[in-house]
């Protein structure tokens, strides 16, 4: 039998040979535009990054529902919370390093504690931001937001899933943090691929080891699974919801495979890796290896060089898989 993607997920088969590429962030831009058309209550806020966060699509179509806040992320979250208290559905966007980086206290109280229906958008997340360097690479956003009660965290894998996550966020009642990258990423999912907030999905079925991934690392995980097949049969789980984590799906897979690797473009401390480790150690302890940023800052450079240097490629997942299998009882 040859390597195949889970047919129930309607994934893009081309991803296995010659992946089609699309801007990760464009999914947000198009999703917000569509959400705006569907619901008048949707409003967009931005801090002088309207083009690069792709909010310009919405801003052009709905100028009266777009609020240019200026470079003031803390104020943006406060204004968004006020709008939400009056029934609006605000999407408040900037780069992940500044939002939630700078606006964390406002998110904590004005959004999470008050349970206002604010959607916090962290664009340019991850080290693949590249040449702007460490100051602009949002790597701690997941960890810092995960600690907050009553917020949902989404990290979609690609363009299409980002669009679905944006549309789902508009419908969902409650605080959401949505993070995605700047660069083009392979199109793994299609418009038919199922997506639901709170659900992880098995993209590749396997029995020897589980890889739980989110964001651009889902592609690297599939590549790793393909390379290891048939010697090692890797189960790849896409977990676009980091909080609340779909612990049931992950535990079920761990019971089958007995070993788990996590993969993300963020700090493993407190990130998806941290979340999966917490879930498994409390429910079904198995050996775990975590691929991601390992307690360090990034630096300036081309995205590909950085992804290699900081160990975020399929090769790193392959190594982690081999090591974690050796730890199985």
């Amino acid at each position: 039998m040859s390597f195949k993607l889970n047919p129930k997920m309607f994934l893009n088969q081309k991803v296995l040979e010659k992946p089609e590429m699309e801007l990760h962030r464009l999914g947000f831009g198009e999703g917000l535009l569509e959400a705006g058309k569907k619901n008048e209550a949707v409003v967009g806020l931005c801090c002088d990054l309207t083009g690069s966060t792709k909010m310009d699509l919405f801003a052009k179509e709905f100028p009266e529902r777009f609020i240019e806040v200026g470079i003031a992320e803390q104020n943006m979250i406060g204004i968004a919370a006020g709008l939400a208290l009056e029934g609006k559905i605000p999407f408040a966007s900037s780069y992940a390093v500044f939002n939630p980086g700078r606006s964390w206290d406002q998110i904590r109280v004005s959004v999470c504690y008050s349970k206002t229906n604010v959607k916090i958008i962290g664009a340019h997340a991850g080290i693949s931001v590249g040449k702007d360097g460490a100051t602009h690479q949002g790597l701690e956003d997941i960890a810092s937001i995960r600690a907050l009660p009553s917020i949902t965290i989404l990290a979609p894998a690609d363009y299409d899933e980002n669009k679905k996550a944006t549309l789902a966020s508009a419908k969902f009642i409650g605080p959401i943090y949505l993070r995605f990258g700047r660069e083009v990423v392979p199109k793994i999912t299609t418009s038919q691929t199922p997506f639901a907030i709170g659900k992880a999905k098995i993209f590749v079925e396997g029995e020897d080891v589980t890889v739980v991934a989110c964001g651009p690392l889902v592609f690297e995980a599939i590549k790793a699974a393909q390379a290891l097949y048939p010697k090692i049969k890797v189960e790849v789980i896409n977990s676009p919801t980091i909080k609340p984590l779909d612990c049931d799906t992950i535990v079920k897979s761990a019971k089958k495979t007995g070993a788990v690797v996590t993969a993300e473009e963020a700090q493993i401390i407190g990130g998806l890796g941290g979340a999966v480790a917490e879930c498994l150690s409390e429910n079904y302890p198995v050996p775990i290896h975590r691929v991601g940023i390992k307690d360090t800052f990034g630096e300036t450079g081309g995205p590909d060089n950085l992804m290699k240097k900081y160990g975020l490629k399929s090769d790193n997942i392959i190594t982690a898989v081999k090591e974690v299998i050796l730890m199985k009882k």
Binding site: A134, T135, H136, E299, T300
Partner: peptide, 27 residues
């Protein structure tokens, strides 16, 4: 400037170059 493994980071970093008093980038 801005190349991989350069001292001239995309935004200035006090530990990367002599004479830079502090790191900046986040306005």
């Amino acid at each position: 400037l801005r190349q991989f493994e350069t001292r001239f980071q995309g935004h200035p970093h006090n530990l990367a170059l002599p004479g830079i008093e502090t790191t900046s980038g986040p306005l």
